[in-house]
């Protein structure tokens, strides 16, 4: 293979005055920011939707189900393009112009990635709640709790613990999926990966570095949540047998 290895180029100056390794670091920063913000959106909205789908109120269930069906059955890249290219043209003109000119791109990206992931989290939360014995709800109601209070104090604390492993893998997924947000103008790690390839053509070195970076992000996220899992384990449950 007559490939010309050159690790030095990471310390060369790119034409914006920064060095290439600084591009990688800045990409890493954006990836982390987009991912964590989207995760927050997804957890919040996903939990609400998941709870809605387990309530006795039929129209709440219907809304939750419809949401999950729509957001799970369209590819992420297309959802992002819809938010970026299509939505601003469909809203009133003033608002569209505001979305295009003043709204930071990261908001579009976080909305897109967050809403996409929320559908998956809603599925997990729903199955977590449904995995609990019915008696838990009845016990709560018997104690004089309202329906909402049975969620708040009885069912959700248990359900989250049950689905924590599944949520861990969603949290790792969100870091991987954030790579797609390059298509809506986020200068995250994959964007920088492409850009450095274009500038330097040192494909192998930059692939190794960026792959390791994603690997590290996934690993850190995994360990972090394993720690949470360990700390919140309920004694006596079979599911609490280790943070692996």
């Amino acid at each position: 293979m007559n490939y010309h290895w050159d690790w030095q180029f990471f310390f060369q100056e790119a034409d914006d005055g920064l060095k290439y390794y600084e591009w990688v670091i800045s990409g890493l920063g954006w990836t982390t920011a987009v991912s964590l913000a989207s995760l927050a959106v997804a957890l919040l909205l996903g939990s609400v939707l998941g709870v809605m789908r387990t309530t006795p109120t039929r129209w709440l269930v219907a809304i939750g189900d419809a949401y999950v069906d729509v957001f799970r059955n369209v590819p992420l890249i297309i959802q992002l393009f819809l938010w970026f290219f299509v939505v601003p043209e469909l809203v009133p003109e003033k608002m569209g112009i505001w979305m295009k000119q003043d709204l930071p791109y990261i908001v579009t990206a976080v909305v897109g990635l967050g809403l996409y992931t929320a559908a998956r989290i809603a599925e997990q939360v729903k199955s977590g709640i449904n995995a609990l014995p019915r008696g838990q709800r009845f016990a709560g109601l018997a104690l004089g709790f309202t329906e909402w209070q049975t969620y708040r104090y009885v069912r959700l604390p248990m359900a989250y613990r049950i689905v924590l492993p599944a949520l861990t893998s969603e949290a790792m997924n969100i870091f991987k999926n954030s790579a797609v947000t390059y298509a809506v103008g986020i200068l995250e790690l994959y964007f920088q990966y492409k850009q450095i390839i274009e500038k330097t053509s040192q494909v192998l070195e930059i692939t190794i570095v960026v792959t390791l970076a994603y690997f590290t992000l996934a690993f850190v996220m995994n360990r972090l949540l394993a720690f949470v899992e360990k700390r919140t384990r309920v004694p006596g449950l079979i599911s609490g047998t280790g943070g692996k």
Binding site: M1, M172, K176, N177, A179, Y190, Y193, L204, T211, Y214
Partner: peptide
């Protein structure tokens, strides 16, 4: 390994690197 890296990056990396290999 494959569960830790973004698919879109693997798609591009394989496209550029497989011929080198």
């Amino acid at each position: 390994f494959f569960r830790s890296v973004p698919l879109v990056q693997v798609i591009l990396a394989v496209y550029l690197i497989l011929p080198l290999i």
